[in-house]
């Protein structure tokens, strides 16, 4: 085992540990910070895989922007939800993904080295903006859709005060049937067939 592989393993183990901390930290803020740490370590992995551009992107977007978003959301909520026990037994919560992982490993390991790797033409920029230009354009569409959606989600408070949870469309001719004022579906206590 040479030095390079050792460094890789160390980086990945570090990233995994940070990830573990992120999902098990009791405080949301701590969790977000551990996520940022995991992000930084994965950026290093990417760098070590000689993908420097992606590493920078991951550092700035993954570790930077996303973390800021998380912190913002957490601060905005001001919620300190006490850690509650998971909804499913820990054995299943850990066991199922672990089983899937082991089974995948059994299927694909050892990963074969491709016989004759293709020689790549072009840089990151030419590839992204040339070869995969279509994908980049679709991503722009996705960003547009996402922005509209977020606007819709965040603006729905105003609608509530205006419409006061009545109906999606009002039909003056027909009086609403007597119903509970809440919108939850009434699924309990159904008549049997």
């Amino acid at each position: 085992m040479n030095l390079e592989v050792t460094v890789f393993i160390l980086l990945l183990v570090g990233a995994s540990l940070c990830a573990l901390m992120a999902i098990s930290a009791p405080q949301l803020l701590t969790s977000a910070l551990w996520l940022a740490a995991a992000s930084v370590l994965s950026a290093l992995v990417l760098y070590a895989l000689s993908a420097p551009t992606m590493a920078i992107l991951e550092l700035s977007v993954g570790a930077g922007l996303v973390t800021i978003l998380f912190v913002f959301a957490i601060q905005y909520e001001q919620s300190d939800t006490p850690a509650s026990p998971p909804l499913i037994p820990r054995l299943i919560g850990w066991g199922l993904p672990l089983a899937a992982l082991i089974l995948t490993g059994a299927l694909i390991l050892p990963l074969p080295t491709p016989e004759q790797p293709a020689v790549e033409v072009g840089t990151f920029a030419t590839l992204l903006w040339g070869s995969r230009a279509l994908d980049a354009l679709i991503q722009v569409g996705l960003i547009f859709a996402g922005t509209l959606g977020v606007l819709g989600i965040l603006s729905s408070r105003k609608q509530v005060s205006m419409v006061t949870d009545t109906a999606d469309t009002a039909q003056p001719d027909r009086a609403p049937l007597p119903a509970p004022p809440v919108l939850e579906p009434t699924l309990e206590g159904q008549e049997p067939l």
Binding site: P86, L87, I88, I92, G93, L96, P97, A99, A100, L103, T104, A106, L107
Partner: peptide, 25 residues
């Protein structure tokens, strides 16, 4: 209707499918 359990079903399906693939393949 609990998200966690829905996701558990997804992971469970993944595990099951991997078993099927291992055996069937």
């Amino acid at each position: 209707g609990v998200l966690t359990l829905n996701l558990a079903a997804v992971v469970g399906a993944l595990t099951l499918l991997m078993i099927i693939l291992l055996v069937g393949g």
